[in-house]
Design a protein around this nucleic acid. Structure first.
Lengths: 214, 214, 214, 214
DNA sequence: AATGAATGAGTTTTCATTCAT
DNA sequence: TATGAATGAAAACTCATTCAT
């Protein structure tokens, strides 16, 4: 993961202008959606001229794709840290799932614009961008599947007939909860989560393993 | 300006043309999203002229809102049929939840275009349309909450500290599963569900009450 | 001049529908101008259907022209009543000019919509309509010229080197005063004249013959 | 978005393109009226692309208003130069009025398109533009009123009971004469005045002070 | 690297007019 | 005569992209 702090000596190779443009675009995409965001607005927010945008990016679409792909890598990294080394009790499992989710939810809350675009607004974009967004969630699900298969391998979860379906449901649950927690019922980027990441993660993990009755 | 009088001999209340336009628009919105759907495409698909669209609708935005509001009413109706009259066992509860979900999933599959717009593409539209879509899911959650409160009242579910949160998680689960089941990982309108509505409903209901471990 | 009162027995040959359409159109043209008035508004105001308009008129333009030509005839008639039979003193002349102007101003105030279109809004219409309006004022000036020539013939006015120029100036004065008196500085159709027709006529007539110093 | 900085070496403050567009628009508005002038015609006449228009102006209406306000300032400036310093004889007064009118008429003839829009065609435009035009004539009348009050103050004109009414009549006379002199009876932009500015000004001034009998 | 004026294809919307009934 | 749904040719305006400087 690239550093976010800019050193005074400007050693990191990514030009500052590009960063500013990325950030401005992500915020606007998150708030207003892809089509309702004009390049003219992005460059104004970044404080550069129209032409400069086209020096750093091939165009609006390509930029959005780069934004998405960058987000995917950071997201997958978070989940892969939940990969189990050893077996443990059921409570261990619930706890470690809660930990993973806490990390995920905290990351998400620290990258609200990215998540808003990936979870909500990205589907309003053009086909290529939509594909890139879909691939994020496929990679996300894949990362979760690895974790679940590992838990089965370690005898911590029963041998499901259809692991994919279970993972599918699991990921649906997580993205669903995540979306509502982050953005509320109205999908508002400025919504402030009412629970802490740890709280919602614990509740979700409990539901994950034990359902409404547990 | 549109005539409101219905001739007695006319059984279907809605003019043919308007229906065709609605259907064409919904299909295109579902497939390509709001902004990538041009009015010119809608009218071509419906086989009418550009001006005819504006005879039946005030504009693109207003039409989308009407589409969404119409969908909301139909959707809520499905859920409200799951309201419990009497208490029962846990298996009863799982079964009846599975029944409700089966109805919901079947309805969704019979209205794929509507669901694609409500679940996925609607967020890419303009503010007013997005609001209307958000309201659909608020109404949806409200309807579910009524059912859950009723189950608690009948002693079938424990007295949760935070009912709203539980319902929230529940609805997240359901919409998440529904989206993936209907449109697959790539959010493809032409995706064909691999499980029947009853199968996915049963699996979801089990997860709902018992989680991964159940 | 055709009667304005509709007899109960409907003896006048002009269909009522046509009258209603004319009146509605004139009011809208006067208020909003030619291009800002839609046929759909005219027919709604007249309480008939869109198609009916085209039974009575060939189109929007032709209708406007008919409106204008009808107005011209009525207007010229008023001025021609000021034609002198006998000579008289200067005061006679001022008085009889004031009388003529009083008649004109009263007529104008009773036909505010017509005058608004002729004096103000007509110039915003299409070429043919504009021509028709211009012709009204040519006819108007012609009628005045006849009166002035007659006054010269009777020795009541000096033998101008350039009668046309004098009449020109005279008519400019009259239409200018008329416009401001009827519609105020903002050209508002709903403006209420602050002076009576007789007052403004007398003042104008005095200015006409004696100028600011008189 | 438009640059505000003027390079030191650039003497004329207004970008060339904007000037060309203004001029083209004014000519077309004057000839064909507001609604019959299409933006596509304006840009073609100015030799730029459609988009360029919207770089310099917010839209058709806003441009028309800017045109009108610019014209108002220039017009008022002409009249204010007629403000009297000292008293004088009646002949002085007639002469200096003739001088003022000569200036006005010359200015008008050098800005025929502007005057055609202000005097004739502007009333066919949209409400906001019409308001702007009306305000021009209010400012115009105000400027004249100042001059008349000054003449009364200097004892050169009698103490009228109703100065506003007199000024009103005076301005009606002047705009009326001006319109006919510039554009003839048919309101033709290509009409060539038959009298010189000085001739018509003198004639008007005489009429102004002495009327038809003078 | 950076600017910002210029482009023009594409979009929604309007509205006078037509025509089957 | 009368209706009102249907038409389609424009019109204003947008905005991603280009390019001379």
């Amino acid at each position: 993961m690239k550093g976010v702090l800019i050193l005074p000596s400007q050693t990191n190779e990514e030009p500052q202008r590009e960063q500013e443009l990325r950030q401005a675009a992500l915020e606007l995409f998150a708030r207003k959606g892809y089509h309702n965001t004009k390049i003219s607005e992005v460059v104004k927010a970044a404080g550069v001229s129209q032409g400069t945008f086209y020096w750093y990016f091939d165009g609006k679409e390509q930029m959005a794709i780069r934004l998405v792909e960058n987000g995917r890598d950071k997201l997958v990294e978070v989940i892969e840290q939940g990969y189990r080394k050893h077996a443990g009790s059921v409570d261990d499992m619930v706890n470690s799932s809660a930990n993973l989710l806490t990390n995920l939810f905290e990351f998400a809350n620290e990258n609200r614009n990215l998540m808003a675009f990936l979870l909500i607004k990205g589907q309003g974009a053009d086909p290529k961008v939509r594909s890139a967004v879909s691939e994020v969630w496929i990679a996300f699900e894949e990362a979760f599947k690895k974790n679940v298969l590992r838990a089965i391998e370690l005898g911590m979860l029963p041998q499901f007939t259809d692991v994919s379906l279970r993972v599918n449901i699991l990921v649906s649950l997580i993205t669903g909860v995540l979306t509502k927690w982050l953005f509320g019922p109205l999908h508002d980027v400025d919504y402030e989560p009412v629970y802490t990441a740890a709280q919602i993660a614990e509740e979700t993990a409990r539901f994950e393993f034990r359902g409404l009755l547990g």
